[in-house]
């Protein structure tokens, strides 16, 4: 079987900060990582390949530096890695991104067939969760999102568990299909030394805009219907009463509890030992 994993190299968002003085984005020194959800998608593809046989290809769109993440994927055991990188891709929103990825996948499908496409449920730098479904639509294959377990995969069909708000759904789809996955799906493996060696020497294929069929109107800024019109520091609620409780925490606590009861914010018989219903 041929498993293709779409992965994105993202800045580690827990480290992206706004400079408090100048209110500008501080991008220097922010490490890049494989989008964590995508890493779980890769792990699942590797595990399925190890069981069912076949091949894992990783596909990423991004600047030339994104080869670092692809090498990392190879060190974990991916067989092949392709980077889609071209200036013409810059400024793509989710719609244009899914177009570019889908066109590359289409080329791969024609050349070597695809049984399953795997993506993370969303990227931590954008949190949109749109590219996975976008690819599925464009390739006209069924999608199963928020996957937390793969029951089985066999010729022509897959069964998974999907995480919904109020439980889990067991669903089946015909192959080829696209999954977007949650972190609970699996534990990411450690790379073996031979794979580390292979990755260090591996040169991912780099496809520019001329390497596969693309229409200029559908990619980059031109192919992106959405645009940012302004950015700003989030407006907050204005703070209420602040009690300095450094010297005498005991009486500060008593004073606060008193106020909460007085204003009926907390009541003697707790209303909610379970929930609103």
């Amino acid at each position: 079987m041929h498993f293709v994993v779409c992965l994105k190299q993202v800045p580690d968002t827990s480290e992206v900060r706004i400079d408090p003085k100048t209110n500008t984005l501080m991008r220097e020194g922010v490490p890049s990582i494989i989008n964590p959800y995508d890493a779980h998608a890769l792990e699942e593809a590797l595990a399925l390949r190890d069981k069912a046989g076949g091949k894992v290809t990783v596909l990423s769109m991004g600047p030339p530096q994104a080869v670092d993440s692809l090498r990392k994927a190879v060190s974990l055991g991916a067989d092949e890695a392709i980077l889609l990188s071209d200036r013409a891709f810059a400024g793509s929103d989710t719609l244009a991104t899914s177009y570019i990825l889908a066109q590359a996948l289409e080329k791969i499908r024609q050349e070597q067939g695809i049984d399953l496409v795997l993506c993370g449920k969303q990227a931590i730098d954008g949190d949109t969760a749109q590219v996975g479904p976008g690819i599925a639509r464009r390739l006209d294959i069924p999608q199963l999102t928020y996957v937390i377990k793969v029951d089985w995969i066999k010729e022509g069909e897959i069964q998974v568990h999907r995480k919904l708000e109020d439980g889990r759904e067991v669903a089946r789809a015909k192959l080829p299909a696209l999954l977007t996955v949650e972190k609970e799906l699996n534990e990411i493996r450690y790379a073996t030394f031979p794979n580390m060696l292979r990755a260090a020497k591996y040169e991912p294929l780099v496809w520019g805009a001329d390497k596969f069929h693309l229409s200029p109107a559908e990619m980059g800024l031109k192919g992106s219907p959405t645009s940012v019109s302004r950015i700003f520091a989030p407006p907050g609620r204005t703070g209420g009463e602040q009690i300095m409780a450094i010297d005498d925490p005991g009486s500060a606590a008593i004073s606060l509890v008193g106020k909460l009861f007085q204003q009926n914010i907390i009541m003697v018989h707790p209303i909610a030992r379970g929930g609103r219903d």
Partner: peptide
């Protein structure tokens, strides 16, 4: 951008 700023999209 990781929730540190708000963006208005059109």
């Amino acid at each position: 951008f990781g929730g540190n700023i708000m963006a208005t999209i059109l």
